[in-house]
Amino acid sequence: MFSYRHAFHAGNHADVLKHTVLIATLDHLLEKEAALTVVDTHAGAGLYRLDGDYAGTSGEAADGVLRFFAESSKAAETPAPGAPAAKSAGKKAAVPAEDKPVAEAIARYLSVIHDFNPKGGARVYPGSPFIVQHLLRDHDKLKLFELHPTDSRTLGANIAQLEAGRQIAVLTEDGFGSATKFLPPPSRRALVLMDPSYEMKTDYGRVLDFAAEALKRFATGTYAVWYPIIPRPEAHDLPRRLKTMATKAGKSWLHATLTVKSSKITKDAASGETQRPGLPASGMFLINPPYTLKAQLAEALPQLAERLAQDRNAAYSLESGG
């Protein structure tokens, strides 16, 4: 139950997608003066060292956020140019255009990463809790749930350094079991992020159950679900069922996916050993998304697919409804 540690995956291509979407969503929600409450159901440890033992063991950040920075110790502090905006959803990665600037949503994401690495590069990677706290105003609230005992202690220690007082609550509880107690918040404005590990197949069903209950309690909240796209029926069924849920509730929705490589299992020609591809793709599904988000992702997704591609199967999709 407690085997998953996000430290091994910090800064990978899935984090780039998730946090690009998260920042763009928050930027829009924070344009209004009224207080915003953010609930993170699976907060992790909050901060990660990409040159540490965990991230160094997996090396996933090298094919994620570090693709946007120079490999030398004097990493570039500004992103390289990217690819043109998407003309339609579901396309292969766009051909890079060296005279085009990086998409606004990607530039914003990289600026936040830079804020945690003022000397350049990306040695420190902020997880969702620290990204959110970095953007929130003094009168906003952040509720962090983390059930893994080690990560919860680390999260608490990391958050304590911020001296944020009562603005942030760290709870060693099951987010799916108790996060709805904060809905609706007094200001009636909230963003809820759901990104469990999905190590257990039951996580897919629990996402759906939690989202359904949250919508009943607080129909106007913004709900963001990250999920892995892997060869498992539950993974492909999740976005379809979320669409059905949002449509029946009369709510708008947005679904973005990013694929960086093939999901096929192969065999090494020399050794005959089975080669598993790792995580090939992931998606973000939002209910009640900002109206500005689709246009931002239409520009950013083809660039992400081109920059983070690990083989010729790199692609993206973007669809919306409601």
Results as ranks from 00 to 15, higher is better:
residue 163 E to T: 15
residue 162 L to T: 07
residue 119 K to H: 07
residue 221 G to T: 05
residue 166 R to E: 14
residue 208 L to A: 05
residue 205 G to I: 00
residue 183 L to S: 07
residue 193 L to H: 12
residue 195 D to K: 01
residue 221 G to E: 00
residue 205 G to Q: 00
residue 218 F to A: 05
residue 146 E to I: 01
residue 208 L to W: 03
residue 232 R to G: 01
residue 228 P to V: 02
residue 224 A to P: 05
residue 205 G to A: 03
residue 112 V to H: 11
residue 136 L to F: 03
residue 145 F to H: 06
residue 112 V to Y: 13
residue 232 R to M: 00
residue 154 T to Y: 04
residue 231 P to N: 09
residue 232 R to W: 01
residue 203 D to I: 05
residue 236 H to P: 04
residue 205 G to D: 00
residue 159 I to E: 03
residue 235 A to P: 12
residue 204 Y to N: 06
residue 126 P to E: 10
residue 144 L to G: 08
residue 198 Y to D: 03
residue 198 Y to E: 03
residue 154 T to A: 13
residue 144 L to C: 09
residue 179 A to M: 15
residue 177 G to T: 11
residue 129 P to H: 11
residue 180 T to A: 15
residue 233 P to W: 09
residue 129 P to W: 13
residue 141 K to W: 10
residue 162 L to A: 13
residue 138 D to I: 08
residue 114 H to M: 08
residue 230 I to D: 13
residue 226 W to M: 08
residue 129 P to F: 15
residue 154 T to E: 13
residue 204 Y to R: 03
residue 174 D to R: 08
residue 133 Q to V: 03
residue 180 T to K: 08
residue 143 K to D: 01
residue 224 A to Q: 14
residue 185 P to L: 10
residue 197 S to Y: 00
residue 150 T to M: 09
residue 208 L to F: 03
residue 167 Q to F: 15
residue 208 L to I: 02
residue 189 R to F: 04
residue 198 Y to P: 07
residue 207 V to A: 00
residue 113 I to F: 02
residue 170 V to A: 15
residue 140 D to Y: 04
residue 226 W to I: 04
residue 125 Y to D: 06
residue 122 A to Y: 07
residue 146 E to K: 01
residue 195 D to R: 04
residue 213 E to D: 06
residue 152 S to W: 11
residue 173 E to P: 14
residue 200 M to R: 14
residue 119 K to C: 06
residue 185 P to Q: 11
residue 219 A to T: 15
residue 133 Q to E: 10
residue 187 S to A: 14
residue 199 E to G: 00
residue 202 T to V: 14
residue 155 L to P: 11
residue 177 G to N: 14
residue 111 S to I: 14
residue 128 S to D: 05
residue 179 A to C: 06
residue 142 L to N: 03
residue 135 L to N: 07
residue 169 A to P: 11
residue 139 H to L: 12
residue 189 R to K: 13
residue 210 F to A: 00
residue 149 P to C: 04
residue 171 L to E: 14
residue 211 A to S: 02
residue 157 A to Y: 03
residue 141 K to T: 07
residue 155 L to R: 03
residue 227 Y to G: 01
residue 201 K to P: 09
residue 189 R to G: 12
residue 126 P to C: 08
residue 228 P to G: 01
residue 159 I to T: 09
residue 198 Y to Q: 06
residue 120 G to C: 03
residue 163 E to D: 14
residue 173 E to T: 06
residue 197 S to P: 02
residue 178 S to D: 05
residue 209 D to C: 01
residue 186 P to E: 14
residue 216 K to H: 12
residue 190 A to I: 15
residue 137 R to E: 08
residue 226 W to R: 11
residue 223 Y to R: 00
residue 228 P to N: 02
residue 202 T to A: 04
residue 138 D to E: 11
residue 138 D to V: 08
residue 128 S to K: 10
residue 201 K to D: 05
residue 216 K to I: 14
residue 159 I to F: 05
